[in-house]
Amino acid sequence: LPHTAVCLVCGEAGKEDTVEEEEGKFNLMLMECSICNEIIHPGCLKIKESEGVVNDELPNCWECPKC
Results as ranks from 00 to 15, higher is better:
C44W: 01
L28V: 12
G11R: 10
N55R: 11
E51T: 13
P65M: 02
S50C: 13
P65F: 04
L30R: 07
V6N: 09
M29Q: 08
K48L: 12
T4R: 00
G11A: 08
A13S: 14
A13Y: 09
L45S: 13
T4F: 09
E22S: 11
H3N: 14
L30S: 03
N27H: 03
C64F: 01
L30Q: 05
C61V: 15
N60T: 09
I47L: 08
G11S: 09
A13T: 11
C10Y: 02
V6M: 08
K46L: 12
V53R: 08
E12A: 08
P65E: 08
I35R: 11
I35W: 02
T4D: 07
N60G: 10
I40R: 07
N37M: 10
C10P: 03
L28D: 10
S50G: 14
G11D: 02
L1A: 07
E63S: 06
M29R: 15
P65N: 00
A5W: 13
P42E: 03
P42M: 03
E21N: 01
V54E: 12
G43T: 04
V6D: 05
L1C: 15
E32R: 14
E21A: 13
L1I: 15
V9N: 15
H3Q: 11
K66E: 10
N60Y: 03
I39C: 07
E38V: 08
S34L: 04
E22N: 08
V6Q: 03
K46I: 05
C36P: 01
N60C: 04
V19A: 10
P65D: 03
V9I: 15
S34K: 11
T18R: 07
P65Q: 03
N37S: 13
N37P: 01
H41P: 06
E23H: 07
D56Q: 10
S34P: 03
M31T: 04
V6F: 02
E16H: 02
G52H: 09
L28M: 15
K48F: 10
K66S: 05
E38R: 13
H41D: 09
L30F: 01
K25D: 01
S34Y: 03
K66R: 08
L30C: 06
G11L: 12
I35D: 05
M31S: 03
E23D: 11
S34F: 10
T18W: 05
P42N: 00
C61F: 05
E22A: 12
C44E: 01
E23S: 14
I39N: 13
E16M: 08
N60M: 06
E20C: 09
E63G: 06
C64A: 00
S50I: 11
G43Q: 04
N37T: 04
E38G: 05
D56L: 09
E51A: 10
I40W: 03
E63L: 10
E49K: 09
E49F: 10
C64L: 00
N60D: 07
N27D: 10
D56M: 14
K25E: 03
C61L: 11
G52A: 15
G52V: 12
V19L: 12
C36K: 02
E51L: 04
S34H: 11
G43A: 13
D56N: 11
T4S: 05
S34W: 03
V54M: 08
C61D: 03
C7A: 01
T18C: 07
K25F: 02
P59V: 12
K25S: 05
G43R: 07
H41S: 00
H3T: 14
E16D: 02
C33H: 07
E63A: 12
